[in-house]
Simulated assay, not measured.
Amino acid sequence: MKCDCCGRKKKLFESYVAIKYEDSRINLCAFCNDLAYKIRDDANNNDKELFEKHLEEWINRSKKKSDKFTKWQVEFIKKQKSIFNRMKMAQDKK
């Protein structure tokens, strides 16, 4: 098994995360999975600086990504940017 984001091959006793997507699944190593969670948390916390930093790090890391991961990543990033923008608009109204 290998990470659909960075292409890293699974080693003995190393854990990977399987994300159900459409009719298949995407496998992520712990590092790529952590970056996805950080991006989600940054969007929810409306932390633009960390959001951009983690997003750039994740995009740079995903050089050997699979086609299904690319499709999922685009949807995931769009969703997180949408959440980030809604949070920002809510703060601006205050």
Rank of each mutant, 00 (worst) to 15 (best):
Q73S: 14
D47M: 02
K38P: 01
E49M: 11
K20I: 11
Q73T: 04
F76I: 05
C5E: 06
L35P: 02
K9C: 07
Q80D: 00
C3Q: 08
V17W: 03
S15F: 08
I59S: 12
L35W: 02
N46Q: 09
I77L: 06
D23F: 12
Q80W: 05
E56I: 08
K48M: 13
A90L: 13
D34F: 08
I59L: 15
D23M: 13
I19H: 05
K93M: 15
M89S: 13
S62K: 00
K10S: 11
Q80C: 02
E14K: 06
D41Q: 08
N45W: 03
K68F: 11
K63C: 05
K88R: 12
F51R: 01
K10F: 01
E14M: 09
N45Q: 10
A36D: 06
D4G: 05
S62H: 00
Q73L: 15
M1C: 09
D34A: 13
E52D: 12
A36T: 07
D34Y: 03
F76E: 02
V17A: 10
K65T: 01
A43Q: 02
Y21Q: 04
K63W: 05
E22N: 14
Q91Y: 13
M1I: 09
Q73V: 11
I59R: 14
E56N: 12
T70P: 04
E52G: 04
K20M: 11
K53N: 06
F13D: 12
V74N: 15
E14C: 03
N45F: 06
K10W: 04
I39F: 00
K38W: 02
L12W: 11
L12S: 14
S24M: 07
M87K: 15
A18I: 10
R61W: 01
N85K: 14
K71P: 01
G7S: 03
C32K: 03
I19L: 15
K81S: 08
E49W: 04
E52N: 10
N85I: 10
D34G: 07
C6P: 00
F31W: 08
E52A: 08
E56W: 08
A36P: 01
K48S: 15
C3V: 09
M89F: 09
S62Q: 00
I39L: 03
F84H: 06
D41T: 05
T70M: 10
T70S: 15
Q73D: 11
L50M: 11
W72Q: 01
C5R: 05
N85W: 09
N85Q: 13
R8I: 11
I26V: 06
M89Y: 08
F13R: 12
R25G: 10
K81W: 09
H54R: 12
N44V: 00
I26R: 04
F13K: 11
E75I: 07
K81Q: 11
E56V: 05
H54Y: 09
N45E: 11
S66C: 10
K2S: 09
N44R: 13
L28F: 01
I26F: 01
F13E: 10
I39P: 00
